[in-house]
Computed example of a mutant assay.
Amino acid sequence: MRHVLSILVENEPGVLSRVVGLFSGRGFNIESLNVGPTLEMGVSHITICTSGDEQIIEQIMKQLHKLITVIKVVDLTHLQAVEREIVLMKVGAEDAKRAEVLRIADIFRCKVVDVSPDELTLEITGDQGKIKAVVALLQRFGVKEFIRAGTVAMRRSMQLAD
């Protein structure tokens, strides 16, 4: 099962290496990893997407809590959360196809961030389902380049009981 872990850490050298080392040392794969500073000085936020059963994830979370530089760990998998990814995608868009590519981009609220005579570079932001749908529709135009950033996730403010 796919899990999204939200980890607050002290922003100091070697923290990311130690966090990632917990996964690699136990043979667990990281599907995506996103790291960035928070508004609090000296604190960073790590979002890790991984797969495993509940027992494996529980073990990883216990090990993460043991690291001195880890402030907080939350498994967002069973919580209401907002998840987003960003993709930069260069798509073939010669004259005859350009209008259709732009129409698809508009429907999915993609941004055109670069233009050339035969290509468009699109910025696609959304959840995994949206990105998968856009990519599927645009592949027939020829994907020249594709860069996908890892998931960022945040617990929703309003947590309603199921």
Score class of each variant (00 low, 15 high):
residue 103 R to Y: 02
residue 103 R to I: 00
residue 103 R to K: 11
residue 104 I to F: 06
residue 105 A to R: 11
residue 105 A to M: 04
residue 105 A to P: 08
residue 106 D to E: 15
residue 106 D to Q: 12
residue 107 I to C: 03
residue 107 I to E: 12
residue 109 R to D: 09
residue 109 R to W: 01
residue 110 C to Q: 02
residue 111 K to Q: 14
residue 111 K to W: 01
residue 111 K to F: 05
residue 111 K to A: 14
residue 111 K to N: 13
residue 112 V to K: 05
residue 112 V to D: 08
residue 113 V to C: 12
residue 113 V to Q: 02
residue 114 D to L: 02
residue 114 D to R: 06
residue 116 S to C: 01
residue 116 S to D: 07
residue 116 S to V: 07
residue 116 S to P: 05
residue 117 P to F: 03
residue 117 P to E: 10
residue 117 P to V: 10
residue 119 E to V: 11
residue 119 E to K: 11
residue 120 L to A: 03
residue 121 T to N: 03
residue 121 T to F: 01
residue 122 L to G: 01
residue 122 L to H: 06
residue 123 E to M: 12
residue 123 E to D: 12
residue 124 I to Q: 01
residue 125 T to C: 09
residue 125 T to Y: 02
residue 125 T to E: 08
residue 126 G to A: 09
residue 126 G to V: 02
residue 126 G to Q: 05
residue 127 D to E: 14
residue 127 D to S: 04
residue 127 D to W: 01
residue 128 Q to R: 12
residue 129 G to Q: 11
residue 129 G to A: 11
residue 130 K to I: 07
residue 131 I to E: 00
residue 131 I to A: 00
residue 131 I to C: 00
residue 131 I to L: 15
residue 131 I to F: 00
residue 132 K to Q: 09
residue 132 K to M: 04
residue 133 A to W: 00
residue 133 A to G: 04
residue 133 A to Y: 00
residue 133 A to Q: 14
residue 134 V to K: 01
residue 134 V to Y: 02
residue 134 V to L: 05
residue 135 V to Q: 05
residue 136 A to P: 01
residue 136 A to S: 09
residue 139 Q to A: 11
residue 139 Q to T: 14
residue 139 Q to Y: 03
residue 139 Q to I: 05
residue 140 R to F: 08
residue 140 R to C: 03
residue 140 R to D: 10
residue 141 F to E: 02
residue 141 F to Y: 15
residue 141 F to A: 05
residue 142 G to P: 10
residue 142 G to I: 08
residue 142 G to N: 04
residue 143 V to I: 15
residue 143 V to R: 09
residue 143 V to P: 05
residue 144 K to C: 03
residue 144 K to N: 11
residue 145 E to V: 02
residue 145 E to F: 07
residue 146 F to W: 08
residue 147 I to R: 04
residue 147 I to T: 14
residue 148 R to S: 06
residue 148 R to P: 03
residue 148 R to I: 05
residue 148 R to H: 06
residue 149 A to E: 13
residue 150 G to M: 12
residue 150 G to L: 06
residue 152 V to I: 15
residue 152 V to R: 10
residue 153 A to I: 07
residue 153 A to D: 09
residue 153 A to P: 10
residue 153 A to V: 11
residue 154 M to H: 04
residue 154 M to K: 12
residue 155 R to K: 15
residue 155 R to A: 10
residue 156 R to W: 06
residue 156 R to Y: 05
residue 156 R to A: 14
residue 157 S to E: 15
residue 157 S to L: 13
residue 157 S to F: 12
residue 158 M to V: 13
residue 159 Q to Y: 08
residue 159 Q to R: 15
residue 159 Q to N: 08
residue 160 L to T: 15
residue 160 L to M: 11
residue 161 A to F: 08
residue 161 A to L: 14
residue 161 A to Q: 14
residue 161 A to W: 04
residue 162 D to W: 13
residue 162 D to I: 10
residue 162 D to T: 13
residue 162 D to S: 12
residue 162 D to V: 14
